[in-house]
């Protein structure tokens, strides 16, 4: 059902969850947000995680990204086992190896668009690879907005800045949680196009959570989650097929 270890000889694995489980509460109130999940995400692919609300998508993404801790199992980013790392190590991993796009509130209001884009690198005290950053900025079409602060940008522009930030440091992997959830369909389509473009042209790895079949349609592979378990997956998915599958899952 999922990609096995044997496949990884051909395509490197960017992120892997092994028997990952996450339990909230105890006794009667116990919620298994992740229930013994094993899943891999290949390098250079645009993967989507789908599932009904409450199925554990965000939890999985957060655990993969070192923002949250598992109650059982292990997480690898490339060869690096991040489950069990200290808070400080996790922070550095997030800073140096991961890019993030959240549903909303992605930008620091006191910083300009450009400062937001290079934020992880300036936090690391690293000089950005200017040519690469310029490339990203041109790709997302923000050249003439660089000096603006987030409050002077539209929602779509803000999300594009967020995508640019996620890509600019050339992270090993980018995680996006409903990146288009707050956008109108046109702006959403733009943002998704850029993400797909980054995977295709720059070889970026992206894992995106969404409940929008149209958004998932931009990806190379969709993993379906229900009640904290992987229930299905689709390669080279089409929006229509995804919708059907989702309906079956009762979303």
């Amino acid at each position: 059902m999922t990609a096995t270890a044997a496949d990884s000889t051909q395509t490197a694995i960017a992120a892997r969850a092994e028997h990952a489980s996450k339990v909230y509460g105890a006794g009667e109130a116990e919620v298994r947000a992740l229930d013994d999940i094993t899943v891999e995400f290949q390098t250079g692919r645009f993967s989507a995680i789908m599932g009904p609300s409450g199925s554990g998508k965000s939890t999985l993404l957060h655990c993969l990204a070192g923002l949250d801790r598992l109650t059982g199992g292990r997480i690898f980013l490339g060869d690096l086992q991040i489950s069990g790392m200290s808070e400080k190590q996790l922070t550095l991993v997030r800073r140096d190896r991961i890019g993030f796009v959240f549903q909303a509130y992605n930008l620091i209001p006191t910083l300009t668009a450009y400062e937001n884009i290079v934020l992880p690198m300036s936090l690391a005290g690293r000089k950005p690879d200017q040519a690469y950053v310029d490339g990203v900025i041109d790709t997302v079409g923000l050249r003439n907005r660089l000096k603006h602060r987030p409050s002077e940008l539209s929602g779509g522009q803000q999300q594009r800045v967020a995508v640019a930030r996620a890509l600019a440091s050339r992270p090993a992997i980018v995680f996006a949680d409903e990146p288009t959830g707050n956008l109108d369909s046109k702006s959403g389509a733009e943002v998704l196009t850029f993400m797909a473009q980054a995977v295709r042209d720059l070889g970026q790895t992206i894992v995106m959570v969404t409940h929008d079949p149209a958004a998932a349609g931009y990806s190379d592979r969709v993993v379906f989650l229900a009640d904290g378990k992987i229930v299905d997956e689709m390669l080279e998915p089409e929006a229509g097929a995804i919708l059907d599958r989702m309906k079956k899952l009762g979303a």
Binding site: T91, R95, I108, L123
Partner: peptide, 16 residues
């Protein structure tokens, strides 16, 4: 809070 959370998410250390 949100922006501090964001800063921490994208790699600001506690010390920073």
């Amino acid at each position: 809070r949100r922006e501090l959370g964001l800063l921490r998410a994208v790699g600001m250390t506690r010390r920073q």
